[in-house]
Design a protein around this nucleic acid. Structure first.
Lengths: 211, 211
DNA sequence: CTTGCCGTAGACAGTTCTGTCTGGTAGCGT
DNA sequence: ACGCTACCAGACAGAACTGTCTACGGCAAG
């Protein structure tokens, strides 16, 4: 009966406890989302993520064969969340595309007021990943999606040069996000919104040839 | 004569080679500058820096008791270099402060055309350091210096709201720098300059109350 | 009941990283 | 000639990290 294993803890009172469902993966992703963003991709170790998820190591590696796979899944989730907030903020500004172009900057204000705000997860991830890696490529793709979406809004707003306006606005947005990793100053977000409003207004005006 | 040490390599043909001067520290800093920027603070290991500097480990730890000390020295050097390039670009634009406010963006264009460009060393460093650490504080201080300098230029240019213009310009500048870690697109730098020119022009104009 | 899947628990290997320590060498001023 | 200083070379310790492996428990479907 008693196993001869000297190292094995007597399995009697062994709390293997629970196994809710196929939700171990979700717990891992939740923890990764939190730790990767708060500490950075490299600073957050696999062991810590496993421990805080309350998951067995074998389970972890079943779902994410390598750390990079988890990082990619994390970025995927961030993409969904952030894009959603951006769209929501834009739509909250009303049906007019030119209003939406300004309104989307409210997502920045909201984000930087959140506790533990540490700037843009994608910019931070790019800073930690070598170019050419899957992680880095993923961040580039994200930024391109955002740029395309803003360009689309600018197009609908009927400005003369949608590309130019979209470029300017993403610069301001990225600037606001990047400064967030330094200090989560709400004034920067407000300034970004004001600057965006100015740029959109100028793009809509008859424009006396700004140069 | 022959040392009894079994492990010791016979010191006969030992090339301890050179000891130029007190320049070991410089070589370390040069290597750190290169590797920290190219790979990131965490990805660049002490051992690699030591090996590529051609320096003994003891020498290294004599000058930099901990890795953080080297990182701080690295940031100090980056600050000097980047601030210098910014000032030079501004001055190259002529004596008029309003021209300098636009001209400083030429430093961004130049930087992103450089091989191995990977965005702003400070933003990247901030992404890898926890807030509250010396490294993080140093990056914040850098950005504040830049902001103060631009504000000063805006003041001299005689715009109505120097704070507001300086905020906008740093947002655009940071945006250009942040996007540099994703892809070193010269178009982004050009767009940043154009946006800056537009913002400066608008700030100087009689301004029909932009809202 | 048995079989297979999903899960826990944790030992283990192999690498890498930071930081310490010993020992030896070359030049320089006195 | 002597000692001082700055340097090179590399072994070593201790920790942390990623990833593999064995062993076991419970649940549901056939």
């Amino acid at each position: 009966m008693t196993p001869p294993a000297a190292t094995a803890p007597n399995a009697a009172e062994l709390r293997t406890v629970r196994t809710p469902a196929g939700q171990a993966k979700d717990r891992i992703l939740d923890t990764a989302f939190r730790l990767f963003y708060a500490q950075g991709l490299r600073a957050a170790g696999i062991d810590t993520i496993i421990a805080e998820s309350g998951v067995a190591k074998a389970t972890f590696y079943k779902y994410f064969p390598a750390k990079d796979d988890l990082i990619l899944a994390y970025l995927e989730r961030v993409d969904g969340v952030w894009t959603g907030q951006l769209h929501a903020a834009a739509e909250a500004a009303g049906p007019d595309p030119s209003d939406q172009l300004v309104g989307l900057f409210d997502a920045l204000s909201t984000a930087c007021r959140r506790d533990g705000y540490r700037g843009c997860a994608f910019i931070n991830a790019a800073a930690e990943s070598a170019s050419g890696t899957r992680v880095h490529e993923r961040t580039v793709a994200h930024k391109q999606h955002i740029l395309a979406w803003i360009r689309d809004l600018a197009d609908k707003a009927g400005v003369q040069d949608p590309d130019r306006l979209a470029r300017s606005l993403t610069l301001v947005l990225d600037g606001g996000l990047a400064s967030g990793v330094l200090d989560a100053d709400p004034a920067a977000a407000a300034a970004a919104r004001a600057t965006a409003a100015q740029l959109v207004a100028a793009a809509l005006a008859p424009s006396p040839a700004p140069k």
